[in-house]
Amino acid sequence: MAQHRFHKMHGLGNDFVIFDAREHDLSLTAEQVRALADRHLGIGCDQLIVMRAPSATGTADMAMQIFNHDGSEVSACGNATRCVVALAGHDVLIETGAGLLRGTLGDGAVTIDMGLPGLEWDTLPLAYPMDTAHLPVGWEDLTDPAAVSMGNPHVIFFVADGAAVDLERLGPLIEHDPLFPERVNVNVAQIADDGIHLRVWERGAGLTLACGTGACATAVAAIRRKLVTGPVQVHLPGGTLTIDWQPGGPVSMTGPTTHVFTGEIDI
């Protein structure tokens, strides 16, 4: 049996199985990813991460491959990036499908420079041109959303009561709408005195306790609409992230990580 070592980590409850394949290559099929991510029959996670050697010498310290719970591969995951930096144990430049992301270790937290947000309709992408600050679309009571790409597509709804939204029902409906050719992450945000309260339906993963790119996208959308100013606290079911963004600049995300356990498995 070929045993593969893995780490189980989470960022605010958004949990990951992380394999280090920088020295020994590891190839995974979508079926294997789904089996490993299964919470009853596998290890269980929202996303599965493979740390790899960078594609070109000198461009980054490592590369990161990201798989959703359903086996699909995606370009970005903010909470997973923070966990990988914490696992590395030092500041690191990571090559992702969304570009190079720099992670910095702090006092009990990790800060990621998430790069510039994508604010153009074809960056997300959308099926046809429209103003991403105010999309002229809606699904039942969810109307007037914003759209932001953080290397993955997000649609953001600002509502009076985020807890009252039936996101388990509406999330899949919006995720698979033809307006979003690559599907979309669905964010429901409530502005409060202490910041933004956020729930996220992640494409390919469903409801999660936290979503780093969702927190970034929502903060950007709220700042664009002048609902808040940066830095802003984004409160998710699993905890709080600090997001900072000044228009025209990169997005910064800071939050804690937790190493749960290390194990070995025969894939």
Rank of each mutant, 00 (worst) to 15 (best):
I191F: 05
E175W: 10
E182D: 07
A192Y: 04
V74A: 09
M64W: 08
L236E: 12
L198T: 08
P136K: 11
D193V: 12
P129W: 00
G255S: 08
P250D: 03
L236S: 06
L173N: 01
L87H: 14
A133L: 15
R169F: 09
L48N: 09
T104D: 06
W121K: 01
P145Y: 04
T96R: 11
V17F: 10
D166W: 10
R39T: 10
T242S: 09
H176A: 08
G255C: 09
D144R: 14
H4W: 13
S72A: 08
L207P: 00
R22I: 00
G255I: 03
W121H: 01
D46W: 15
L12Q: 06
L100E: 11
I49G: 05
P247C: 00
A192M: 06
L167W: 13
D193R: 14
C216M: 02
C83D: 08
G13E: 10
V200R: 12
S75D: 14
A215G: 11
C83A: 12
V50E: 08
N68Y: 01
D131R: 05
I223T: 05
D113Y: 08
H69G: 00
A35V: 01
L170A: 09
M64I: 11
G255W: 06
A189P: 02
R39Q: 02
L227K: 07
M114H: 12
T257V: 15
A192D: 13
M253Q: 02
A163E: 15
T57N: 10
D15L: 14
V188E: 02
A86T: 14
L12T: 12
G115V: 14
W201Y: 08
L12H: 05
V92N: 06
T143K: 15
R102V: 06
Q190T: 09
Q3L: 15
V234H: 07
V228Q: 04
I174M: 03
S55Y: 10
M62H: 00
H90Y: 07
Q3H: 14
P145R: 02
G162W: 12
V260H: 14
M130L: 10
G118L: 13
A53K: 15
Q3T: 15
A215H: 09
E31Y: 00
I174T: 01
P231G: 09
V232D: 03
G13I: 15
L236W: 09
H235D: 05
L142Q: 01
H4E: 12
L179I: 03
A37G: 05
V186P: 07
R225E: 00
H4S: 10
D244C: 03
L207E: 07
T254I: 05
V92T: 15
G99D: 13
T29I: 02
T262Q: 11
P153R: 04
Q65Y: 05
I267D: 01
E73H: 10
F6A: 06
D141P: 14
T96D: 04
L119G: 03
T96F: 14
R39W: 07
E202T: 11
V110N: 07
E95V: 15
S149D: 02
E73D: 02
A109S: 13
Q65K: 08
T59C: 04
I265H: 06
R5G: 06
L124E: 01
D141Y: 13
L26F: 06
I94Y: 08
G263E: 13
A189R: 01
D122C: 03
V188T: 05
V200I: 11
T29M: 04
L87Q: 14
H197G: 00
Q233P: 00
